[in-house]
Structures are given as structure tokens and as C-alpha cells.
Simulated assay, not measured.
Amino acid sequence: MHLLAATPGSIDDGKEPVDLGQTPADVVFISAADTELAALSEARSEMADAPTLRLANLTHLQHPMSVDLHIEACATKSKLVIARVLGGAGYWKYGLEQYAAHLHDAGVPFVALPGDDKPDPDLWRLSTVPREDYDALWAYMVEGGPANASGFLAYTRVMLDGTDKPAAATPLLRAGVYWPGAGVADLEAARENWTQGAPVVPLIFYRALVQGAGLHPINRMVKAMLRQGLNPLPVFVASLKDPVSVATLEQLFTTAPPDVILNCTSFAVGSPHQGDHHAGALNPLAMEAAKGCTVFQVVLAASSEDAWEDGLTGLSARDIAMNVALPEVDGRILSRAISFKGEAYFDEATECPIAAYRARGDRVTFVAELAANWARLRNEVPEKRKVALVL
């Protein structure tokens, strides 16, 4: 059996064990979300009195031997271990059971947090910290953002040394307008950068990119659309099925009617038509306020650029399912993958390779030009449009 080194931006299939090679620290944090690892890495670097920290990508702890190695070399010799698990205890059964058992025997507090905002009794039962501390840590991660990442680390330090507790987690809107350089903003902040009378193009993406450190492709896309003479409207959402997010989109579409929509969220709502109740949740991108405009699917690939460039299949099977096949159910048209996951840097302090979305300029430009062309076509009088049938 071969023992592999962890590769940032990759998803370990569990067929081969991976040695993270980490040493003990005050706090060990395990998560499959690259955005969370990046946010905590950045927060630690900016804190004057941060606890020593190890960040571990859960996707590299799928093989039983990977789990055993990390427990023996790092976790049981650290002071506090926190795992954030999306999908419940069944998703990482062996890992949770082994960490919980060995950390209990070693007297190391263990916190098993849900990877979303839904309570999970099974994960709570595996945890060995007071409920107050558990809920406080969970709230910081649920809300996300730089301030809450710093608050999370400050709270772990309190759990270790008993000093005064930091402020509680600061809520982050479930959906809203984002603007590069301004962060969470409003429609007026976007309009300050618009051209009078230019086509409006909403760019819809996951709230998790605001919570973590994944906004590089969004910033590049906004700048590229401005160069094309478009009025970009970057909007973050919890999901297209979230009622608050849907209401936010409706309000924004009503106030600033779109000409083309670029969507970076994955999966499908359930139907390309707003009225198909039997097909699942209503499709907010087909609501009346969207004015029937074309919706393009923009892919933020979870695979690396090298894998895409050198492979024979282009995008990975996972990316094709989440960002190509399923979005077609909602009637979205594929544009391009504009960014890929890759190692932004190796964080020596946390002994973890930090992966992040990195935009690819030519793909960003292509999508911006595509949006501009479709916006012009939409506003052209029908008599001047040319129709082509491509087989």
C-alpha cells in the first residue's frame, strides 16, 4: 500500500491513505470546505494572540489509515479538536468514531459540528464540551466571514485558558448584494459603478464565497463585465431554494430588471418553469421579475486547472453532474468554467495547503463577451435579428 501526500484542491477517493504530516497544536480544525480552511488561515495570520492551529481537509481523511495516522501523530497530542461535517455522522462514520474514542481516552475535548445550520443530535452526542461552547463555535462557522473566523479562534483560546469570551457571532445576511472592495453592500453601491442605460447582468453565487475566501473569480467577472459596457449586479445567496434568497432576488430583479443572468450556483431547483409546482421548488431565475431573460450557467470548478487542461474529459464527473447536467434541468445554458481549485499557498503556521478558486482570464473574458452579445441581441428589434439553425 502506498502512502500519499495531501494534494490541495483535490478530492481524495479514499482508495489510498494520505499522511497529512501534521504536528500537535492548541487547536485542530477539520473541514471539507476549502473556504473555511482559507478563512481560518487568514484570520490566524491577522491575530496577535491566536492559538497555535492545525487545519486539516476532511477529504484527505477518508481512508481509515489516514484517520489513524492523524489521530496518533497530531490530534491526541493537541488540546482541542473540532470537526465540521457536512452530511451528518454517516458521511464520515469511521473518522468520527475514531476521533471521538481516542480523544476521549486522551482527555482532549472534541467538538463535532454540523457542516450547515441544521442541528444534528448524533454529532452533539459525540462531542465532549459544554453546550454553551458548542453552540458558540457552531454559530461563528454558520455565519462565516472574516470577523466571525477571528471570533471562532478567539473563542477556542478562551476554552483553553479561561479568559474573557469574545463577542458572539455577527449575523451575515442570507442573501444580498456584494461589490468588490466594498464587501456586503446594496444596490446603490453597485449603481455607483454602472453606466447609465447599460444592460444589467446579475451574477449569482453562493454565500459561502463571502463567508470564506473564494471571491477571486467573482471580482474578476465583475471587472470583465464592466469592460464590456455592462452593469454587473453580483448577488450572493444561501441557495436558490432558500426563501430569503428567492425574495431578495425578486426584489432586486424588480428594481433593476435583468437583461441576462449569469448563475454560479450548482445543482437544479427542479424545473425550467416558474409554475411547475409538481416538478419541485419554484425556479427563482424563471420568476416574472426575471423578465424571461436567458440564464447562463458559469462553472466554478472544484477540480484543478491542471486536471482540466491535461485530462481527456475536461471537467471532472462531479463538476459535470453539479454544474452542467443538473443545471440544464432548470433550463440554464452552459457557458464556461471560469475558475479552478488549486493551491494558493502552503500555510506553514497551520501546516496545511490552502486551496482557493483562481480565475482564468481568457475564460472570464469569454463569458463577459457572451453576456454582452446576448444582452445586445435581447435589446435588438426582432426584424434585425438573424436566426441560425445549428445541427
Rank of each mutant, 00 (worst) to 15 (best):
H273G: 09
A190G: 01
T265M: 07
A238S: 13
A208K: 10
L249G: 10
H216K: 15
P199N: 04
P232K: 09
A190C: 03
P234A: 07
G275Y: 08
A213W: 01
V237G: 02
V235Q: 01
D259P: 06
M221W: 05
L249H: 06
P202Y: 00
S266N: 04
T248Q: 04
I218N: 03
Y206C: 00
V235M: 11
A247Q: 09
C264S: 14
T195Q: 05
L249Y: 02
M221A: 07
L209A: 11
K291G: 03
T195A: 12
K291P: 05
F205W: 13
V222M: 13
V235N: 05
Q196G: 10
L300H: 08
A268S: 15
F253Q: 05
L300R: 00
V269E: 02
V201C: 08
F205G: 06
Q196D: 13
H278Y: 11
V246Y: 10
P243E: 02
L252C: 06
A190K: 01
G270N: 03
V295G: 03
P258T: 02
T254D: 15
V200Q: 01
V200S: 02
N283L: 03
Q211Y: 06
C293D: 09
A268T: 11
G275Q: 13
V210Y: 01
M225I: 06
A247T: 09
V260Y: 02
P202L: 02
L282V: 13
T265L: 13
N219D: 15
S266W: 04
G197R: 12
T265H: 09
A213Q: 13
L240E: 00
G275K: 14
A208D: 10
Q297P: 06
A224Q: 07
F267A: 14
V298H: 03
G292R: 02
K291F: 04
A256K: 08
V235K: 01
A289E: 15
Q251Y: 03
Q297V: 07
T254S: 11
